[in-house]
């Protein structure tokens, strides 16, 4: 496959997944702001979301304070935020358009319809009670895209690079989401924080019900962390994401007659660490340290994949 095509597929999947993750984050934050207003720390919710989305510095250059309106505008509309929903869709579609031939019609339509709708979006669509509808719609579009890819793509290299993009982005998102709330998840914090905060973390990765199915018990910080980091059953856990990244890289290597590089070693290492890791050890090391380490290595892995397959 053309290197440029692989690059575009990887990034269109990353941007699409990112748009969905931002929508998930926004949905949880707006819900949290609604229930935690009585605690007087709603601003904290928006700030946490900004940090998780990784664009805090850019935001501070343009806006005074992380009010609900400012953060929503920044994360939905602002063209200066490369991780905002509309810019993500735009970038995803730009990449898709550059590799039309590598996409199926269903995937293209999922992205193109989404973009055609979003580019005409009026500010009112993200205001007040309209916001949940918009965010639900964005998540639907992303699910539609992922479903279209799953249902219609040939299982060839194009598929592999799409999955690499989706899974690497998802791993990064899960790690960030946990990390901004790592203080809430230390055993000492237990009892001091509102139960709804933990719920929020789980909701953001569609895992509130899953928690109950797996643990059949009340929410406990250590288990929440375990679920999001180490459980193979949860499709958004770090383990699930890295397992697929590692398997996908291996599949590409096999298809190319065993050609492997640093990215394969790195992905295999991360996968092994998660697969055989224990949550007690992670907490002993420090959750924050562990997660920031993961985020950094995921970024390094992205760089190595580009080095080996795109620029190599």
């Amino acid at each position: 496959m053309l290197s440029r095509t692989a690059d575009s597929l990887f990034w269109l999947a990353r941007y699409t997944e990112r748009a969905g993750n931002v929508a998930r984050g926004l949905a949880v934050a707006s819900r949290m702001a609604a229930v935690s207003a009585r605690l007087g720390d709603e601003v904290e919710e928006w700030r946490a979301l900004l940090t998780a989305s990784g664009g805090e510095a850019g935001f501070r250059r343009k806006y005074e304070a992380p009010t609900a309106e400012a953060v929503i505008h920044w994360l939905v509309f602002d063209p200066d935020n490369p991780s905002g929903i509309i810019p993500c869709f735009e970038a995803a579609r730009r990449n898709a358009r550059a590799v039309r031939t590598a996409l199926t019609v269903d995937m293209w339509e999922a992205l193109n319809d989404g973009w055609n709708h979003l580019r005409k979006l009026q500010p009112e669509a993200a205001e007040g009670d309209n916001l949940p509808d918009l965010l639900g719609w964005v998540r639907e579009r992303v699910t539609l895209f992922n479903g279209a890819a799953h249902e219609t793509m040939l299982r060839d290299e194009a598929w592999h690079f799409v999955r690499l993009g989706t899974m690497l982005e998802r791993a990064d998102n899960s790690a960030r989401l946990l990390d901004v709330r790592h203080k809430l998840l230390t055993p000492e914090a237990e009892g001091a924080v509102d139960y709804v905060q933990w719920q929020a973390v789980l909701r953001a990765v569609s895992a509130l019900r899953s928690y109950q199915w797996i643990y059949r018990d009340r929410l406990q910080p250590q288990r929440i962390a375990e679920l999001l980091i180490l459980r193979p059953e949860l499709p958004r856990s770090l383990l699930s994401c890295l397992a697929e990244v590692s398997d996908t890289l291996e599949a590409i290597a096999v298809g190319q007659g065993g050609r492997r590089g640093e990215c394969h070693r790195l992905a295999g290492g991360m996968h092994a660490q998660l697969r055989y890791g224990r949550i007690e050890a992670i907490f002993a090391q420090g959750l924050h340290e562990f997660l920031t380490g993961m985020i950094a290595r995921a970024a390094e892995l992205g760089g190595e994949i580009e080095e080996f397959y795109i620029r190599g």
């Binding site: 496959m1 053309l2 290197s3 440029r4 590409i252 050609r259 397959y309 795109i310």
Partner: peptide, 13 residues
């Protein structure tokens, strides 16, 4: 183009 032969850059070289 290398040695008057045209190549495309692919993920497999």
């Amino acid at each position: 183009v290398q040695d008057k032969v045209v190549f495309m850059r692919t993920t497999a070289g």
